[in-house]
Design a protein around this nucleic acid. Structure first.
Lengths: 340, 340
DNA sequence: GGGGCCTTTTGTAACGTTCCATTTTGGAAT
DNA sequence: ATTCCAAAATGGAACGTTACAAAAGGCCCC
């Protein structure tokens, strides 16, 4: 009867005996239309199984209901948590999410940004690999509102949600110092991302205020399980192990723990290991991992809220937010024992 | 100069000295247009920084470049792997993905399906919670091509990609039988999803062909880490533990291992545990988990390929595919020792 | 030089909405 | 009754693109 076609606003109008414009009003400004007609139109919508075309709406109104989310590394569970936070907030407000993973590749980052542009997303949440992409001398150059996650910009050029990893790193190191460790290695690659550098800075701050006689060293390693394994192998070749390790991320801790346990190094008896992230299962490892909890899910939520605030009111001065991590002391760290 | 507006196909046409239709041809059917004009248009596109409006294209052509992906449970890393597989294939063909998580809620499933409808996605890949949603007496009722992941339908009503979990369950149980276990518990909830039921069926098949004298029992538990912890607690209240456990998913194994180790039960010395899934970090647990490897990433890839095949040629008889899992024997299982 | 035919280009009408200016409606006030 | 006014409803144009039919251009052959 309707020719196999999807019903349009015109079909609904005919069915309800009103004009197309009224149907549009029912959809967008229900308070403008009298209860009687409103009901009639809604009935017609039901009856015809009408679903508005988002493309047509978007084209005509200029407003899109889509938001782009650009992540850095799909393999790291932390990003899944962030995405969840974003998703949970945005679906409530009826936004649709397009998610992309740049995999730390500038190539892929570009691809997704142009997808976002084609779709004219209403806003973008992204975890920057290369922050300069979005700024030009501290000025934002994106045509749509942008919120950065897990990053900060000089002079707040872009509103962002980040985590105070300096404080986090400091608390991790302080914990080890309090336990009596004086021989500590940090595993990770500070050059890989600012938040990693921050952690290291925090660690150093604790060391500097911790007095003399502390041996500290950074062992560079990729941010992955495999990186942890390799770093552990490197350390095992030495005459002596440190008494404690701080891993830049939990995945590194995981790999390192496995390697050490494999060769009979007891954790935490012979070696304390402290992670950073607190992935969902980090508390379930053997031993349960002492680590710095990063509120990834919350970060996603806040980023989404920040973005919708800016979209709804472009002039709103939304300040960047800095979330506080917390040390979760579990069983992979303890007082240094006698060396092997 | 262009009034702050995004340039349109008309602006490009003016710049290049051709008609808008030619610009469209350059974009969609480059072979139709002569090299000289083609170059001129491409230059103009570059110069004006023109990006086509996906909404307008979609509205006019009726073809959308969007595909909907509906997942079941964002917290389970396996789904992340599937999503990755789908994404990797689809972005290559320039599809945009809208990802939704139903969280096993029929409510949210509905929400996302209507989002997909509003956007007129070109196709849907989904992991069904309630398969009947998409079929009506074995007939697909979706207006767009659909591919199911991790599920099968009677008479192939919907093309699907699935994993032969009966074989997987069988191989896991056979492994335990070969080791000499005669007292085995399966932890999980077969009613939760078909693939879980399949695993159990496979386990039972191995038992049936394994001769007499085998004690076997199913302990019901939610499909989560917490579920594993609880199930372990239940088992610990008994007079005697089984000699081996098969967990319906790795997360359950993870929770159970933690609980058992916590109270001093040695794994695998006193109790063998076999998982199912092989999450990225399962091989890094302590002990590295013996588990059935499910090719989640591949499943995502194949689903995406199946879907694009159907979209490109609606008459193509794309047969459902069944992937084969493989047993990864690691260190959480061994011969039953003397009981405690 | 003209006719036929294939290739390239173009003008114009959609696609399904929402915006906006205008008309109609229905009371309240005179 | 008539006038006035706000509220409600409408008609028609526009959003940026592609489809389609029709026009123009090129080429070859007679």
């Amino acid at each position: 009867m309707n020719n196999g076609r999807r019903p349009t606003v015109r079909d609904v109008a005919r069915e309800a005996g009103v004009s197309p414009a009224t149907v549009s009003n029912v959809l967008n400004y229900p308070h403008r239309v009298k209860p009687a007609k409103l009901a009639a139109v809604q009935d017609a919508i039901q009856k015809l199984d009408y679903v508005p075309s988002e493309s047509a709406r978007h084209l005509r109104s200029g407003r899109s209901h889509t938001i782009g989310l650009l992540l850095l590394d799909a393999w790291n569970p932390s990003f899944g948590d962030m995405a969840r936070g974003v998703e949970d907030v945005l679906t409530q407000d009826n936004w649709t999410l397009i998610i992309g993973n740049s995999d730390r590749s500038v190539e892929r980052e570009k691809t997704y940004l142009s997808v976002f542009e084609e779709r004219q997303v209403a806003g973008i949440i992204f975890v920057p690999k290369d922050p300069s992409k979005f700024t030009n001398g501290n000025v934002l150059v994106s045509p749509v509102p942008v919120v950065a996650m897990d990053a900060t910009f000089p002079q707040d050029a872009i509103p962002s949600v980040s985590i105070d990893d300096v404080a986090g790193g400091e608390s991790a190191m302080q914990h080890l110092l309090d336990l009596g460790h004086r021989d500590v290695v940090f595993i990770g690659d500070p050059a890989e991302a600012d938040p990693i550098q921050d952690r290291l800075d925090g660690v150093k701050r604790a060391i500097n205020s911790g007095g003399a006689g502390i041996n500290f060293e950074v062992v560079k390693s990729p941010l992955s399980i495999e990186g942890g394994v390799q770093a552990a192998e490197g350390l095992l070749k030495r005459k002596e192990l440190p008494t404690a390790i701080i891993a830049a991320i939990d995945l590194i801790a995981l790999g390192a723990i496995q390697k050490f346990q494999n060769v009979g190094v007891k954790i935490p008896e012979q070696l304390s290991i402290c992670g950073y992230d607190d992935m969902s299962f980090s508390s379930r490892l053997a031993p349960p991992l002492t680590t710095v909890h990063r509120p990834h899910y919350d970060m996603g939520r806040v980023a989404a809220q920040l973005l919708t605030a800016v979209i709804n009111d472009p002039d709103s001065q939304t300040a960047s937010q800095r979330l506080v991590p917390s040390l979760a002391i579990r069983s992979s760290t303890r007082k240094p024992g006698s060396r092997g």
